[in-house]
Every structure is written in C-alpha cells, then in structure tokens.
Simulated assay, not measured.
Amino acid sequence: MTIREFREADWPQVWPILRDIARAQDTFAYDPDMSADEAHELWIEPPPGLTVVAVAGDQVLGSAKMGTNRQGPGSHVSTASFIVAADARGQGLGTALCRFAIDWARQRGYASMQFNAVVESNRAAVSVYERLGFRIVGTVPGAFAHPTLGRVGLNIMYKEL
C-alpha cells in the first residue's frame, strides 16, 4: 500500500467510497444525496491543503484530506478527514492515513491537529485517533442523527504536534 497525492484520474474510485460513506449516514455529516460534483468540491482540498489516496497497485483503498482548520488567528491548527473502502477496513489504512496527515501537518509547522466532529459511536475511528495521541476535548451531545442509534454525540478531538 502506498499513500500518494490525489490525481484527478483517481476520482472515479474515490467517489464511490465517499458516496457509500455519505449514504450510510453513520460516520460523516455529509448529505447522503450529494452529487459527484458536490462531493468533489467537498473532498478535494485546494492548496495549501492536500488530498491523498492510499493505493494498492491501481486500486484506491482510501483517501484523506488535510489542511488548516480555521483561517486567521486559528491558522496554526490543522485538520484532516479520512475515508476507507468498506472492503479495506481493519487493515491499518485509517491509521496509516492519519499518520501521514500528522506528519504532513508537522512538516508545515502546524502547532496541533483538531478533528471537529468525530461521531462518538464510530469507535474504530475514535480508537485509532486515541492510539495516535488525540484526546477528546469535548463532546456535543446529540449533535449527530445516527440512522440506527438515534442522536449521538460529536467528539472534538485534539493533538498537539
């Protein structure tokens, strides 16, 4: 598995992963009916941010986007988001993508990384982030309408770099 910068030719493989995750409505607060164009606008991070893909040969297994969390006085804090294809989960891809994002942010001089909305019932993601040194600094109760669990919290997770 290799992590490399996203190329436009990757989009036909990234889009189904993102589409399926949005439609599941259990990990991201994305519109489940968004179009491929809307998803592209949402997922492909413009410079100075970066979007990458995790590939095995020619197959895209996952993707990450990273950049500045907020502009102006908050621009020293980075953020990132990660998606992994359903059939590639549980193999360490999310961890590898998160490590890549942390290294990317450190190399660019960010002081920290913050995830603004980690669904608290997404235990796999929370576990990966905690293993990599993130901590939950707050939870917004009931802020995410999970399709089977009802309203669950959104964690704000933070790591100093």
Results as ranks from 00 to 15, higher is better:
residue 50 L to C: 14
residue 60 V to L: 01
residue 101 A to N: 06
residue 119 V to C: 02
residue 27 T to H: 09
residue 47 P to I: 10
residue 8 E to R: 15
residue 131 R to L: 07
residue 7 R to P: 00
residue 81 S to V: 09
residue 77 V to M: 07
residue 73 P to H: 10
residue 155 N to P: 10
residue 67 G to V: 02
residue 62 G to L: 02
residue 7 R to F: 07
residue 79 T to A: 11
residue 66 M to H: 08
residue 67 G to C: 02
residue 1 M to T: 05
residue 62 G to I: 01
residue 157 M to V: 01
residue 15 W to H: 14
residue 157 M to R: 02
residue 80 A to K: 04
residue 115 F to I: 13
residue 16 P to Y: 05
residue 102 I to R: 02
residue 4 R to A: 07
residue 113 M to F: 04
residue 63 S to F: 12
residue 8 E to M: 12
residue 32 P to W: 03
residue 153 G to I: 00
residue 27 T to F: 06
residue 30 Y to N: 09
residue 140 V to Q: 14
residue 106 R to V: 13
residue 77 V to C: 11
residue 136 I to K: 09
residue 20 D to Q: 15
residue 18 L to A: 15
residue 41 E to Y: 12
residue 83 I to A: 15
residue 65 K to V: 05
residue 141 P to V: 04
residue 60 V to A: 03
residue 70 R to D: 09
residue 134 F to N: 00
residue 80 A to Q: 08
residue 125 A to R: 03
residue 41 E to H: 14
residue 97 L to K: 00
residue 134 F to L: 06
residue 138 G to K: 05
residue 100 F to V: 06
residue 31 D to F: 04
residue 38 E to A: 14
residue 96 A to H: 07
residue 129 Y to W: 12
residue 132 L to E: 04
residue 9 A to V: 13
residue 29 A to W: 13
residue 121 S to D: 13
residue 161 L to I: 09
residue 140 V to Y: 14
residue 77 V to N: 08
residue 20 D to K: 14
residue 120 E to V: 12
residue 123 R to K: 14
residue 105 A to H: 08
residue 117 A to M: 03
residue 84 V to W: 02
residue 141 P to W: 04
residue 72 G to P: 11
residue 17 I to K: 01
residue 89 R to F: 05
residue 93 L to M: 10
residue 31 D to L: 03
residue 77 V to R: 08
residue 67 G to N: 01
residue 40 H to M: 12
residue 12 P to Y: 07
residue 93 L to Y: 11
residue 116 N to Q: 09
residue 126 V to Y: 03
residue 143 A to P: 03
residue 124 A to I: 07
residue 137 V to E: 15
residue 72 G to E: 12
residue 161 L to E: 06
residue 100 F to Q: 08
residue 53 V to P: 02
residue 132 L to F: 02
residue 139 T to A: 10
residue 120 E to K: 05
residue 44 I to P: 00
residue 128 V to S: 05
residue 20 D to F: 10
residue 56 A to Q: 15
residue 145 A to D: 15
residue 138 G to N: 05
residue 58 D to P: 09
residue 123 R to V: 13
residue 20 D to L: 13
residue 128 V to H: 04
residue 96 A to T: 09
residue 28 F to V: 14
residue 134 F to T: 00
residue 23 R to I: 02
residue 83 I to K: 10
residue 10 D to C: 03
residue 33 D to M: 11
residue 35 S to H: 07
residue 141 P to E: 09
residue 11 W to D: 05
residue 135 R to W: 06
residue 94 G to W: 03
residue 72 G to W: 14
